[in-house]
């Protein structure tokens, strides 16, 4: 009898523990989403200006460039690579886009050249990755090399000076215009994310892409052309860097050969705190959205609080470190 009672008590305890454990697991699995909600609540508490349309639209406008970059970066993560060259590609495409619009008088030609340049850098990355059968370690070094090449090309093209002036109205509208109060750039970004998410999750091609990052040997045995997937992913990352450059130059109406410095790190951090795995084969565009918004919110809130831009580096570093530690809980 006694043993029976204690047994049932144990059972209740177990059940309670189970439910607590379940909630714990739920939080742990969606830690990135939880972080996002915490950030939003914090923002609302810290500043009464946070939940104004102005601030939210401003936030959206600010994070779009990083968002497009992070989408491309995540594709290379998914395929088991790593792209550090997108920052330099951003600089190169920015100066090309503005410079060629100026010299040829046509914004469309400028954009096409910028996208072609982005695709070329990405293609070079992809081809070298295929040649070396590389994984993230090799990708890190290869894209370090191509980033030097791209930033050298950018500096040579404009002789180290910034190029000012965007003439076409529709070009400016990409960065500054609104449709029904919603920034056009943000619509482009969200469109890219939705299309990519559908491609990754629902198509044969997307499954092959993810599989070649998750386990390249079994992907090869299943008949997936892993080298081709790498080439496609890296080329797309380059093209997205070019699109980000177009949006950025349209917003600032200037192209600078140094505008991409650190942009690759920003994209990488945003992608990873959103919950994309560095090992490859895990993640998606929902995570990119969450990560980019979290990263944007950190900067936005620090600005609202009036924190000195230099001190922001420290706070950002610490917050990011905490975010990465929390994200790591998932893997245990």
């Amino acid at each position: 009898m006694k043993s029976c009672v204690t047994h049932s008590k144990d059972g209740e305890d177990m059940e309670q523990k189970l439910s607590v454990k379940k909630i714990g697991e739920l939080i742990r699995d969606n830690i990135n989403l939880v972080m996002l909600i915490v950030m939003i609540v914090l923002g609302a508490i810290i500043s009464k200006d946070f939940f104004t349309i102005n601030n939210l639209m401003n936030l959206l406008r600010r994070i779009t460039v990083n968002g497009v970059m992070a989408a491309g970066f995540t594709l290379t993560l998914l395929v088991g690579g790593f792209d550090l060259s997108i920052g330099s590609t951003l600089s190169l495409c920015a100066v090309l886009c503005v410079g060629i619009e100026k010299s040829s008088g046509s914004a469309a030609i400028g954009m096409l050249v910028a996208i072609a340049a982005g695709a070329a850098v990405g293609l070079l990355n992809g081809l070298l990755m295929k040649l070396t059968r590389g994984e993230s370690g090799e990708a890190f070094l290869i894209t370090l090399g191509t980033s030097m090449v791209a930033s050298s090309a950018a500096l040579t093209y404009c002789n180290g000076y910034d190029i000012y002036g965007v003439n076409a109205k529709w070009y400016k509208a990409i960065g500054q215009g609104n449709i029904a109060g919603f920034p056009i750039a943000a619509i482009i970004w969200l469109g890219i994310l939705i299309i990519l998410q559908i491609v990754i999750k629902k198509t044969e091609f997307g499954r092959q892409l993810v599989l070649s990052g998750a386990n390249k040997k079994s992907a090869f045995l299943a008949g997936v052309n892993v080298g081709k997937m790498k080439i496609i992913a890296f080329t797309l990352a380059g093209i997205f860097a070019a699109i980000a450059a177009i949006i950025m130059t349209a917003r600032t109406t200037a192209g600078s050969p140094r505008s991409g410095t650190g942009a690759d790190f920003d994209a990488a951090i945003a992608s990873i705190i959103g919950g994309n795995s560095l090992v490859g084969g895990k993640g998606g565009m929902v995570q990119v959205f969450i990560g980019v918004v979290i990263y944007g919110l950190i900067t936005n809130m620090l600005n609202l609080m009036g924190v000195d831009s230099v001190v922001q580096y420290i706070v950002k570093g610490v917050v990011l470190l905490i975010a990465i530690c929390l994200d790591n809980l998932k893997k245990r």
């Binding site: 990488a268 951090i269 001190v311 580096y313 706070v315 950002k316 570093g317 470190l321 990465i324």
Partner: peptide, 26 residues
């Protein structure tokens, strides 16, 4: 963070780089 949390060394050093630079500038 690299040794005891088994975080990716690249990401950790990237964030500490930002923080250290901020301290030095401050």
């Amino acid at each position: 963070f690299v040794a005891f949390f088994r975080l990716s060394p690249f990401i950790v050093s990237m964030t500490t780089q930002i923080a250290y630079k901020g301290i030095a500038l401050t």
